[in-house]
Amino acid sequence: MFNSYDKPLPIIDEDSKGYWEHARAHRLSVQVCKACGHRHFPPTPVCPACLSNTQSWEPVSGRGTLVSWVTFHRAYWTAFRDDLPYHVCLVQLEDGPLVVGNFVGAIPENAAMGMPMKVQFDDVTPDISLAKFVPA
């Protein structure tokens, strides 16, 4: 069912657990402050806007716009060596913060700032699904 995945895996802790539960169900989510409604990512133990510690995870649409991208030609971890070059993108979510992810496959031929993007999930282990992005 799953191929052998030899890349670094996230360490799931109390702050990130909700994100990974949603991702496993193929839902992109962001942390939301119950006190002020601020949406943020990555997770924090307190809200960066009001410092409340009442955080929760809410699904978002997974749609956004391409802000920037980069191609890595160096493997900082040995497990990524066979993937070189690999491509990382920065996406501004329609209903949330900026998120960093990978493109699914190569950079789209017509990649441009502002390009509509949507999330797609890659099930890499029975417990971990990684959010990646494709043109919408």
Rank of each mutant, 00 (worst) to 15 (best):
G64I: 05
N102H: 14
V99L: 11
T54Q: 14
C50V: 11
P135F: 03
G62E: 06
Q92K: 07
A112I: 11
G64D: 05
V104C: 08
H73D: 15
D82W: 01
V88C: 11
K132G: 02
V119N: 01
V99S: 04
G114Y: 00
V91F: 00
T125Y: 04
P85K: 00
D82G: 09
K118W: 03
M113G: 13
G62N: 07
L84K: 00
Q55L: 13
Q120L: 15
A131D: 15
A111K: 02
F133S: 06
A106S: 12
L130A: 13
Y76C: 12
Y86P: 12
E94I: 00
M115G: 04
L84F: 01
L130M: 12
Y86N: 12
W57R: 08
T71V: 13
G105T: 04
R63Q: 09
G101F: 02
C50Y: 05
P85C: 08
M115Y: 03
V70A: 13
V67I: 10
S129V: 10
A75Y: 04
L84V: 05
L84D: 01
L90R: 09
L84G: 13
R74W: 07
G101C: 00
L130S: 10
M113D: 04
L98T: 14
P97W: 01
T71M: 09
D123W: 02
D122W: 08
T78L: 07
H73P: 01
G101V: 01
I107L: 06
D123Y: 05
A79W: 00
Y86T: 08
V100M: 10
G64S: 09
F133C: 08
K132H: 13
P59D: 11
P135R: 06
V70M: 13
D95M: 02
K118N: 06
L66R: 04
P59A: 11
T71L: 08
C47D: 05
A111P: 07
M117F: 00
D122R: 11
S129Y: 03
R81E: 15
T65W: 03
S56T: 14
D123K: 06
G105D: 01
T78Y: 07
L66C: 10
T65S: 14
S68D: 15
F121W: 02
L51F: 14
V99H: 05
F72A: 15
S68W: 01
F72V: 10
A49V: 05
D83M: 03
F103V: 04
D123M: 10
S56Q: 09
A79T: 04
S52C: 06
